[in-house]
Design a protein around this nucleic acid. Structure first.
Lengths: 152, 152
DNA sequence: AATACATATTTGCCTTGACAAACATACTTC
DNA sequence: GAAGTATGTTTGTCAAGGCAAATATGTATT
């Protein structure tokens, strides 16, 4: 087996691009779904709401890390979402540096609207994979992520 | 099987986030690699050089599409890369609207330096997957991409 | 307790990329 | 071939995000 055919059988070279393309397509699809419901939320804002709905109140830093967003950018997103009335900044009891970001009632009911969009996009994305493949895809991505983070 | 355990066994809900995390990690790793070689190239610029090196001269629009970049953004990236001497804008013979972007000699030798970085990052990323799994990951991602694009 | 250091959030500054308008060049139709 | 339409590139404008400095608060050391 020569180098060419090896390169062909393991097209490792485009993983970075491919991930970008898939992600961009998901973002596009999600924002389109949101738009059809008359909601003007960015994908980032959708992720923030989702995180809070799924995992409950947490600090701005935890939130930022979990959606891979810079701390400064998070402050500004929180400004917007608070202004729209979807969440609240509370002070942490013990550590007064830290915020406790929590959804308001409006935020909760927003999330109930968003679950639909979420479901539809993810179904569309994964409809070409059977259940076992979906799980494997997720597993592979997790493993790649850990491999990159724990660079021994 | 209740809803909870189903949700747990098919964690479809975080595919968007997960893709973002993996991609961000690859970008970080690549820019770190570039930095260790004293090269100040963004990931986007790396992709542009790579595309040209792999596929040969093409128009700005083709290039933009292949790295999922807006046309306007591409113009400015080309400005920078041309200023650094890595590529040339030539006019297309038949269609004088169209550019033919080609690497200069400096661009070619830059790419020879970059292949190392590319290899190291992709190896790091995929070292936790065996050969068959790497191929499957690629295949799954392609299928997800097509499922999203051809929304019948 | 005073000093030094670490962490959480905010703000300012800058770069990048999306979108739209402008412009140049092709193509099509009458 | 003139008018209208489509395509490729450039430019202006704006919002989003990264980075660094500023500020506030907590923790550790002496």
């Amino acid at each position: 087996m020569n180098t060419e055919s090896l390169a062909f059988s393991t097209p490792r070279e485009s993983l970075g691009i491919l991930l970008g393309l898939v992600r961009a397509e998901i973002v596009r699809a999600m924002e389109a779904e949101l738009a059809t419901k008359g909601l003007s939320l960015s994908f980032t804002q959708f992720l923030i709401i989702k995180r809070l709905a799924r995992l409950g109140p947490m600090s701005a830093t935890e939130l930022a890390r979990s959606v891979e967003l810079d701390g400064g950018a998070m402050t500004r997103q929180l400004d917007q979402l608070e202004r729209k009335g979807y969440l609240r900044r509370c002070r942490h009891e013990q550590d007064r540096r830290t915020l406790r970001i929590e959804l308001t009632d409006a935020g909760d009911s927003l999330w109930r609207q968003l679950t639909d969009c979420n479901e539809r996009v993810l179904s569309a994305a994964q409809r070409s994979l059977d259940e076992a493949e979906q799980i494997r895809l997720h597993d592979y991505l997790e493993r790649v992520l850990h491999a990159l983070r724990d660079k021994n």
